[in-house]
């Protein structure tokens, strides 16, 4: 069973400098109970993708074509009210910044009660569920924590509270938007372990966005590599990290500090910069920065299956 299937999704923002093609022909699937990682540098369209799924695109953004099929419904063509009804109970989100993700003037208990507003449970029962959930994310003195305000917790605790809120709804899909980026390394490990445990317990799928390759490798079953609004490569984590078939993936792995075997003063980088998405170059999106560019790259490469389940949008994948 597939929980989320995105097919040929195109998202366009109307800007003063013309239309900005933020996502082009994005396709991937999130199977049931799997953790799918999305990796890519800043500006690759990760946030736009999340907003498109949640129906929270900015006013000037629109889904130009394609489908976002979630539990059999196409979110791209659902009206606002219907998507709002899915957000929370079926589709929960943990955002990057734990400092700003909770409302500063409403107590934690009240925020957790408010997100259960659809439930018919009595107030005390809702609070009991909140306390139970806070215990699961290892917030000490959970009953007392309900009365406290977000600024009274540390960053790591706030992120755990955010995770508790998201998972309390027992969603079919949890979207985790760089949930550990703002945390220090030790907290990152514990938070990821916590997320993995809770995912197994609840049995939901997770869409995990990160630019930290180590975390993706550790946590995710599948990985989707994005570059400048396109999915350049996708497959199981083992396939993609073991046999990177798009030059961008290969370069990205080369740049991972964790993979450096020799002492160096300068970490490797990918020369060049992201293309201006208002004037998208003809042909392959990565061609300008690619060290294995060929003449055929002037045309847009198709999605080529390297092995079943492992797809790369590159002509080189064909020769493998």
């Amino acid at each position: 069973m597939t929980v989320l299937a995105i097919e040929n999704l195109n998202v366009v923002f109307a800007t003063e400098g013309g239309d900005l093609h933020a996502l082009r022909d994005v396709s991937f699937k999130v199977p049931e109970q799997r953790i799918v990682g999305i990796v890519g540098e800043s500006g690759c369209g990760k946030s736009t993708l999340i907003n498109a799924i949640l129906g929270l695109l900015a006013e000037n953004g629109r889904i130009a074509s394609g489908s976002i099929s979630f539990e059999g419904e196409d979110l791209a063509h659902l009206d606002d009210k219907a998507i709002q009804d899915l957000r929370g109970p079926r589709l929960s989100t943990v955002f990057q910044d734990p400092m700003g993700a909770l409302n500063p003037v409403i107590s934690v208990g009240r925020q957790m009660r408010n997100i259960q507003y659809r439930s018919d449970l009595a107030r005390a029962e809702k609070d009991a569920r909140s306390i139970d959930m806070l215990r699961q994310v290892r917030i000490p003195d959970a009953a007392q924590a309900l009365k406290r305000y977000p600024h009274e917790f540390s960053g790591g605790m706030k992120q755990r509270i955010a995770i508790a809120m998201a998972l309390m709804m027992e969603p079919a899909l949890l979207i985790a938007d760089e949930p550990t980026t703002a945390l220090d390394a030790t907290l990152e490990v514990t938070t990821i372990e916590l997320l993995k445990d809770l995912q197994a317990e609840i049995g939901c799928s997770v869409l995990f966005i990160s630019h930290h390759l180590g975390v993706i490798a550790e946590l995710c079953d599948d990985v989707v590599v994005m570059y400048a609004g396109e999915v350049v490569e996708r497959g199981s984590t083992r396939q993609v990290f073991g046999n990177p078939s798009h030059p961008y993936t290969a370069r990205l792995l080369d740049c991972d500090p964790a993979r450096q075997s020799e002492r160096t003063r300068q970490l490797p980088t990918i020369p060049g910069e992201l293309p201006d998405l208002r004037r998208r170059p003809e042909g392959c999106i990565f061609a300008a920065r690619c060290d294995r560019r060929m003449d055929v790259c002037a045309a847009i490469p198709p999605d080529i299956e390297v092995v079943p389940g492992h797809v790369a949008r590159c002509f080189l994948a064909e020769s493998q």
Partner: peptide, 26 residues
């Protein structure tokens, strides 16, 4: 525009609650 309002929307809270309870209080 704040992050926590985005969180509130991501939980599908009703617009009225977001405007008057979550945003106006601040």
């Amino acid at each position: 525009e704040a992050q926590h309002i985005r969180t509130a929307r991501a939980f599908g809270l009703p617009d009225r609650m977001i405007t008057y309870r979550y945003a106006l209080t601040i």
